[in-house]
Simulated scan of single mutants.
Amino acid sequence: MSTQGAEYVRDQRYLTTRITADGRDGFPVEPGRYRLVVSRACPWANRSVIVRRLLGLEPVLSMGICGPTHDERSWTFDLDPGGRDPVLGIERLQEAFLARDPDYPLGITVPAIVDVPTGQVVTNDFAQITLDLSTEWREHHRAGAPDLYPEGLREEIDEINAGVFADVNNGVYQAGFARSQGAYERAYRRLFARLDALSERLGTRRYLVGDTITEADIRLFTTLVRFDAVYHGHFKCNRTKLTEMPVLWAYARDLYQTPGFGDTIDFAQIKEHYYVVHRDVNPTGIVPLGPDTSGWTTAHHREELGGRPFGEGTPPGPVAPGEAVA
Rank of each mutant, 00 (worst) to 15 (best):
A187P: 02
F192P: 15
S199D: 12
R189G: 09
L191I: 06
R201S: 10
T135G: 01
S180A: 13
G182W: 09
A143K: 00
Y188A: 02
H140I: 06
E151D: 13
P150T: 09
E155K: 07
I213M: 15
I218W: 00
L131N: 13
H141M: 14
A187Y: 06
L133E: 05
T212A: 12
Y207K: 01
P150C: 08
Q181V: 03
G163M: 08
F192N: 12
N161K: 06
R154M: 00
D217Q: 15
D147Q: 13
L131G: 11
G182L: 04
L208S: 10
F126W: 08
S134W: 00
I160R: 14
R190N: 15
P146C: 01
I160K: 09
V164H: 04
E139L: 14
P150A: 06
R206M: 06
L208A: 13
I160P: 01
A145I: 13
L191G: 08
T214W: 14
G152S: 05
Y173F: 06
A175W: 01
L208C: 04
R189H: 12
R190V: 15
L208R: 15
A183K: 07
Y149V: 09
E159D: 13
D147H: 15
E156I: 05
H141I: 14
G203T: 04
I157D: 04
A162H: 05
Y149T: 10
E151W: 13
N170T: 14
D217H: 10
E139W: 05
I157T: 02
G203N: 07
